[in-house]
Design a binder for these strands. Structure first.
Lengths: 201, 201
DNA sequence: TGTCATCTGTCATGGGCTGACATAATCTAC
DNA sequence: GTAGATTATGTCAGCCCATGACAGATGACA
């Protein structure tokens, strides 16, 4: 990896960190691109060469996490039922984050706080999840053999489960990864209890 | 209702219709506030006195529909289980739209086409649904007696059901209300089949 | 009709975002 | 290490969305 590439990655991370700190300190809307760029000693124009919008920088950690989830999903064995594979992939993604760099964890937590603090960003995250859902649907349909209403329902149920599982985590002082994991397992258990056997097959 | 009030309502509807037509004709992002305002012979500044943002005018019909749904929900008998009440309220809202003015139906369909054509607006609709979900959760919690994880799950499942039911309607040439109704009933039936008895009680 | 409240248009401004062009940094080959 | 190609960055101009302030127009009401 050359110097140029390393510098770019460094600037990207610096922009994300500066942006998240500013968002947390003074709010998303009150923060300007100029402030973020100034904090990293970069021109505002350069900011937009790294991120397509102000929203994108706030959602970058979430987007990265979704990519991790998808790669986890694609290596799940074919023997698992669709929803089981999704749940296991989620556990795997969380585990990777837990074992990874502390800075990455910190960034992820900060990003989540920003998302929950601003309805604007929250909507953006929803769009991210919707885009992701299309790719998840492909995997579910592949495992079930058909892309029908039920495949869509399984996918949508998974999205809902994740959403409920992560929701209100900061509100309940469960902003750390342990709290998230626990909440997530409770929600998976609830799905298991509520659904008819073989519902996702 | 005085002249002033009538004029305002008329202008509001005219702005929505002009905006939707422009969005459909040349795309959401390519349409400017100036164009919308010019089409209604109104100053751009006035547009923002009716709608807080460009997005809001596109989502106005959806927001109105959600209000109708909520008022339907609040008059459902207490004897119905939470999810049954939600489903019946949805049927009621669709029925009201079906029996209402043809122009309102037309506007609703157009708005849905705009929403599906633009990821930008689609995200906005998600935010609308999330805001709505909070109010739905209150009703579910009221009926179940507790605001716990299961109440949240019931609410999220309903949101997912509606989303799956409405999704791809235009893609499948089911842009009319009949098609939507049919699709919605199929999805409700699937939920009924997949969930354990008494799951929402 | 005259007064008041409200709606509307005009103007000025800030901030998000983009294209064009020149400069500076890095990479590659010699 | 130097020269030329490649790529990143800064500067500048500009469009559009959105908002506050003020003045003029229009409907409400006695």
């Amino acid at each position: 990896m050359g110097l140029r590439e390393r510098k770019k990655a460094k600037t990207r991370v610096a922009l994300i960190d500066a942006a998240l700190d500013l968002f947390l300190a003074q709010g998303y809307e009150a923060t300007t691109i100029d402030q973020i760029a100034a904090a990293v000693d970069v021109s505002p124009r350069t900011f937009f060469r790294y991120f397509g919008s102000k929203e994108e920088v706030a959602l970058a950690p979430a987007a990265d996490a979704q990519d991790v989830f998808l790669s986890e999903l694609h290596v799940r064995p074919a023997s698992e039922s669709p929803f089981a594979a999704l749940a296991q992939a989620m556990r795997g993604a969380v585990a990777l984050l837990r074992e990874g760099e502390p800075e990455d964890r910190q960034r992820f937590i900060k990003a989540r706080q920003v998302v929950e603090a601003s309805p604007m960003i929250f909507a953006g995250q929803m769009r991210l999840m919707m885009a992701n859902e299309q790719r998840i649907l492909e995997e579910v349909a592949r495992r079930r053999g058909v892309d029908d209403l039920r495949s869509q329902f399984v996918t949508a149920t998974f999205t809902s489960t994740i959403r409920v599982g992560f929701e209100n985590c900061t509100l309940e002082e469960l902003s750390d990864l342990d709290g998230m994991t626990q909440r997530l397992e409770e929600t998976f258990a609830l799905v298991d209890e509520v659904m008819a056997p073989g519902w996702d097959g």
